[in-house]
Computed example of a mutant assay.
Amino acid sequence: MTLTVQFLSMLSMAAMGVWLGAALDTYHRFIGKKHSFDIQTAVADFCFWTVQALLVFYILYQVNFGEVRIFVFIALMLGFAAYQAMFKHVYNKILTGIIFFFKKLFAFLVYVIKTLLFNPVKWLLHICRRFAMMIVLTLWSLIFYLLWKPLYFVLSLLGVVKVAKKGQPIFGKIKGFCDRLMKKK
């Protein structure tokens, strides 16, 4: 390995140490630091560290064809320590701003979708309901005036309405109606 390749390896591993620090802070921000064991956290941790290890090895492979030496680990720790000392506070502020921005953007998109999609559909359904109620009331009025009023008129001519208005029990009303019909014959 030439001196240039060694220098590039150290520089890239120091940069990967900074990346690991930032990725770890981001991961903890979204997952949360848990002090108790559960299977979901264990699987998420395993996936996170597997992806990070593969990423570090990929960068190392691009720089020096994957030769792992002790200075690679020292450079990773140096980059991680540099991140913790110099960049962590600034990165966390930037991360907080980005998360805030995306929360507001998501809330805005939800508002726009609700305003442009759900409210018009809700309004159309309300109009359809009102229109259906208009049709039902119109049909009910037609049935009432075309069927019930003439039937009421015929029943009032036969005397059933007078009997019904007196408040007699229904069977007495029917019996009295039948008796009157028999007397008229």
Rank of each mutant, 00 (worst) to 15 (best):
L142N: 09
L76E: 00
L8D: 03
K88G: 00
T50P: 00
A107S: 15
R180N: 12
V160R: 01
K122W: 01
K114Y: 14
M182Y: 13
L157M: 11
Q62F: 13
L158Q: 05
R29D: 11
I98G: 07
R129Q: 11
W49V: 06
K162E: 15
S156L: 05
R69E: 08
I74C: 03
I59L: 03
S141H: 11
V72A: 02
R29I: 04
K88M: 05
W148A: 14
G97M: 11
Y58C: 04
F100N: 14
I127K: 01
M77N: 12
I127L: 02
L155N: 03
A82G: 06
F101I: 04
T115F: 03
V112I: 07
K104T: 09
Q52R: 09
R29V: 04
G66C: 05
S141P: 00
V110H: 08
L105S: 11
Y145W: 07
V110C: 11
C128F: 04
L8I: 12
F100C: 08
F65S: 09
V56G: 01
G21V: 01
K185D: 10
M10R: 13
P150V: 03
A75C: 05
G97F: 04
F57D: 06
L109Q: 09
V163C: 05
L117H: 00
Y58S: 13
N64L: 04
K34I: 04
G176P: 04
F37I: 13
F80E: 03
F30N: 12
D45I: 05
A82F: 03
L55Y: 04
G159R: 00
I170N: 09
K162H: 08
F177T: 15
H126M: 02
V90C: 05
Q168V: 14
I174Q: 08
A75V: 02
F101H: 08
F30V: 07
V72I: 14
V136Y: 15
K88Y: 03
V154K: 11
M182E: 11
R29K: 12
Q52K: 06
L55A: 14
L124T: 00
V90G: 05
L95V: 08
R130H: 08
I170T: 14
S36G: 06
H35T: 09
M182W: 11
V160S: 02
V136C: 07
W140N: 12
T4K: 07
M182G: 07
